[in-house]
Simulated assay, not measured.
Amino acid sequence: MNGVHDMGGMHGFGPIEREANEPRFHHDWERRVFAIRVASPIPIPGGSRHNIEQMTPTDYLNTSYYEKWLQSRLKGFVDAGVITAEELEARMAEFRDNPNAQVPRRAAPEQVAATMTRLLSWNSPRREVDITPRFVVGNAVQVCNIHPPNHTRLPRYVRGKPGVVARYYGTYDLQDTMPEGVETPVEPLYAVRFDGRVLWGDAADANSVVYLDMWESYLQSV
């Protein structure tokens, strides 16, 4: 999907400010949003990333990281039928009228323990399937100039550009959002090396290169 969220290669947003000893969360509400994101058992129709990409450009550029997460979850809960837009608005109005009201809390130690176990464990996302990769390290490739209507991991600034396969990772689930009813395909995944001058022209630093992880369906032979 093309939109303001695809910010790779764009100019005019200023430097990225690095905060010394930056905390995991700057506000308590961010902790709650994170907990909602990782602990809620409710599947989000279309996926969380796709919901974020549905935000208007103004809202997207003027919201923080966790505000985007919150907007995505709220839209997802409405889309899933868990709450209605009217119920959400009524609840928000209660807190606007009573900003010091206590937020309801519910003890759920078993759910907390299960969530923590899942967060602290790690399973490789690599899929052991019998797929022969089309490319090998050293192959010259060109990125397909495609414009998927849903969420995609293919950056806009690299579409149509030539590169060289630098590494083969194995097979993984394609992380693009698929149409409803279509299973996520498993594809070979590569690291592709791009010359900075190819991407940025004469403005690129001398000898600069960019490595991008790319699924096989993003690439074609040169």
Rank of each mutant, 00 (worst) to 15 (best):
F34K: 05
S64W: 06
E22T: 09
G14I: 03
N62A: 08
N62G: 08
W69N: 14
R31D: 13
V33L: 02
R18C: 13
E30C: 00
P15Q: 07
H50V: 03
R73L: 12
V33Q: 05
A35H: 00
H50Y: 14
L70N: 13
E17Q: 12
A93E: 13
T56H: 09
K68R: 01
I52W: 13
K68S: 01
I36D: 14
F95S: 02
E87G: 05
I44R: 05
E19C: 14
H27D: 07
E17T: 15
P43L: 00
M92N: 08
R49P: 06
E30T: 00
R49M: 13
L74C: 11
L70V: 09
F77T: 06
K75F: 12
G46M: 00
G14P: 00
P23F: 00
V33E: 01
R73H: 12
F95Y: 10
L88P: 01
F25N: 04
E89V: 02
H50M: 12
I83F: 04
R37W: 15
E19L: 11
P45Y: 04
M92E: 15
P15R: 04
P41F: 03
I42D: 09
A20V: 12
S40A: 01
V38Y: 06
I52T: 13
V38I: 11
E86M: 14
E53P: 04
S72F: 04
H26D: 11
M10Y: 07
E19W: 15
A20K: 15
A20S: 09
I52H: 14
T56D: 12
P23D: 01
E53A: 09
P43E: 06
